[in-house]
Design a protein around this nucleic acid. Structure first.
Lengths: 200, 200
DNA sequence: TTCAGTTCTTAACCCGGGTTAACGAAGGGC
DNA sequence: GCCCTTCGTTAACCCGGGTTAAGAACTGAA
């Protein structure tokens, strides 16, 4: 368990500052609550049934958030790359056991927090409270964007959206997982790609 | 502009208390920031282009949140009934102009807040800050539920879900708006209803 | 190297939902 | 009363995506 490098530390701090104002004091407190951790490719940061207790900032690598239904069909909720936050967020804030798989698609370095620690610290810190609030708000905006994509875009358009958004990370993501993310089968995505290839 | 009745006041207070702890002092502050207001059937609480400044607790009646795309096609994001919160939330928290129509499907009574007032008050109140945070978190959970419905349920299953959830309010909602909410056309919903009628 | 598992593609077939159009019913506005 | 719009239904036709199956390319482990 190595310590954070100076660069990583600066990156994290900048990332959090972009969400809400972060005084040196608050930053020191937050930093003290986190711990570096890593995952091998294929490892899990969260699994269903486990108590949901932790979230993390991705330092490097790529994670996939997904769940399975009763018949075992997977649905991908999100991909998370460097300097994004990862964790079974809905379950953390509801105090429920995880229903989410969070899997490392590549080797991953994380800076991990126990949600209870941060939540407790926010009880006495307006700044931290605001940070958690803004974070929740951003998560909401992202999900509303996703709602928009399902309501108004075709599968082909959704594919082109994600293609723009994850451009460089996409080579690490198997296509059937991208298909699941946009709500179609791997076969359908393959057809869409063939269609697009013919056009351009 | 009538004042709140004792019953309305108790209802609102209870509703907010269910989101986060609400001391008498904070409740008094919140209450002082709100103002009663009403809308005729067909009136709008929010329209695209307007600055997004207000949100409200519904005292009675039913609202619809929707937007239109470039080709003018409507998509319904939500319906809001008594004691639910309504407003162009994503735009409020991002400080952007509204992109959302919020329309009264029936005559509506509201208790209205200026977002800036509440936000400012939260800068000095941990309790209020927590309230806003929890509210955002609940909004997120609701949208994630909706994501689940699009990823794993068929249109027919989505219809049955909403049927359970809005049971009594549904007679005030035209069917083509329900169709839009679940992401299909009115014609398709009519077919689904015919299918279901034949079965049961 | 061989065998198995994974990933992606393509084809064939089916079905759900989109589109357009026609029709009847209900509800305002005059 | 009448008209006009909105609403819901049904039918016909088309197309996108689901399903199943087969095969090719690649990877990794024994």
């Amino acid at each position: 368990m190595r310590a954070l490098t100076a660069i990583e530390e600066a990156d994290i701090r900048e990332r959090l500052s972009a969400i809400a104002p972060l005084s040196p004091k608050t930053w020191a407190a937050v930093r003290a609550l986190g711990a570096r951790s890593s995952l091998d490719k294929g490892g899990f940061f969260s699994r269903p049934q486990e108590p949901a207790t932790r979230f993390a900032i991705v330092l490097s690598g790529l994670l996939r958030h997904y769940y399975t239904d009763a018949r075992g069909r997977e649905s991908v909720k999100a991909f998370r790359g460097p300097l994004e936050l990862s964790g079974p967020y809905a379950e953390l804030i509801q105090g429920r056991p995880s229903r989410t798989f969070i899997e490392a698609l590549t080797p991953v370095e994380l800076f991990v927090f126990r949600y209870a620690d941060v939540d407790a610290a926010a009880q006495t810190s307006l700044e931290l409270s605001l940070l958690l609030r803004r974070f929740g708000e951003l998560q909401f905006v992202a999900k509303e964007q996703r709602e928009y994509e399902f309501l108004q875009l075709s599968a082909e358009e959704r594919y082109q959206q994600i293609r723009g958004r994850f451009a460089e990370l996409m080579q690490h993501i198997p296509q059937h997982q991208i298909a699941s993310y946009i709500g179609i089968t791997p076969v359908a995505l393959s057809r869409i790609r063939a269609r697009l290839g013919r056009k351009r």
